[in-house]
């Protein structure tokens, strides 16, 4: 088994300043992340909010560097952002001054592909995500689900090795989300891309992932990796009511339960520290 992506003992911390005037302190975002993703695999990473999922994604994208450890793509260290990885963000990140088609062409432009070929490829991916006929719409003329389809097409168009998805469906309504989930599986099967998909939804994780990596609350670690043994999800009529689905869902829920409440505690503490700094100081003194 060769790993497409290897994340080896990666650590990352940030300097944060809780409130103005206070000394900045180190906060561990990720501690000792270790994860291997196979070629063509659909890997889902699920964790409580603030566990460093997005930090991990930034590292994979090459937008930030780890404090220690290594991130490898095809055995080579990730040195910076490049077109061998495509990112889909929760907030779409479409360029509002470009039409859907021009947005999809954007990455191809960066790759230095000729105008005609660009147009052809972009059209192909627009139709792959089911948006034929909307090529010349501006983002403001599209619904959230359509915007996310454009964003997916944009990331696929420049043919990256790996697709990194950062809670891509979190901002959508439930029905659109379900549609896009099954669409994504279809696109994954059609393109054979390696996908790393970050979410905080357990259902989504079990539905999409071949494996689900459960992360702990901050500092984020990989708590456990759960295999999801469904063969073809798309043939199943209502996978979510399958007893095996329910069992796996519960298993991940059990793994996450404590982490979520701990993450919420941390969140509360952080809010107290930044808005009521004096009170906590007094309490600390007493």
């Amino acid at each position: 088994m060769t790993a497409k992506i290897s994340i080896r003992h990666v650590q990352k911390s940030f300097r944060i300043r809780r409130s103005p005037g206070q000394h900045s302190e180190h906060q561990h975002a990720l501690s000792d992340i270790h994860l291997e993703v196979r070629q063509g695999e659909f890997m889902v990473i699920v964790g409580p909010s603030g566990c460093g999922k997005s930090t991990l994604l930034d590292l994979l994208a090459g937008l930030t560097r780890p404090d220690s450890g290594q991130l490898l793509l095809d055995g080579k260290e990730i040195a910076g952002p490049d077109l061998d990885r495509g990112i889909v963000f929760q907030q779409y990140a479409l360029f509002p001054w470009k039409t859907a088609l021009a947005n999809v062409e954007f990455g191809l432009e960066a790759k230095g592909i000729s105008r005609r070929e660009r147009r052809e490829t972009a059209r192909h991916y627009i139709s792959l995500v089911g948006l034929s006929g909307f090529e010349h719409r501006y983002p403001y003329e599209l619904s959230g689900g359509m915007k996310q389809r454009v964003a997916i097409a944009r990331s696929l168009a420049y043919d990256p090795e790996v697709l990194l998805m950062d809670e891509p469906f979190a901002a959508l309504d439930a029905q659109t989300r379900e549609t896009l989930q099954s669409e994504l599986l279809r696109i994954w099967e059609a393109t054979g891309k390696t996908i790393i998909f970050i979410t905080h939804g357990i259902d989504e994780a079990v539905y999409l992932g071949q494996r689900v990596a459960v992360m702990s609350s901050r500092p984020g670690r990989i708590k456990q990796i759960v295999d999801i043994p469904f063969q073809s999800r798309r043939n199943e009529e209502d996978l979510r009511s399958n007893p095996e689905f329910v069992r796996l869902r519960h298993e991940i829920w059990e793994l996450l339960k404590d982490e979520v409440s701990r993450a919420q505690e941390q969140e509360k503490q952080k809010t107290l520290d930044s808005f009521g700094g004096k009170e906590t100081l007094l309490k600390g003194g007493a």
Partner: peptide, 29 residues
């Protein structure tokens, strides 16, 4: 300029010059 747009363009490996030309200028227009 929306930092997410900059992040998105940077993730596609845009050089600072093309980032400026293709993202910063149209976004601030």
């Amino acid at each position: 300029v929306d930092p997410l747009l900059i992040k998105s363009a940077r993730s596609m490996g845009l050089s600072p010059v093309s980032l400026f030309r293709k993202v910063i200028i149209p976004a601030s227009l």
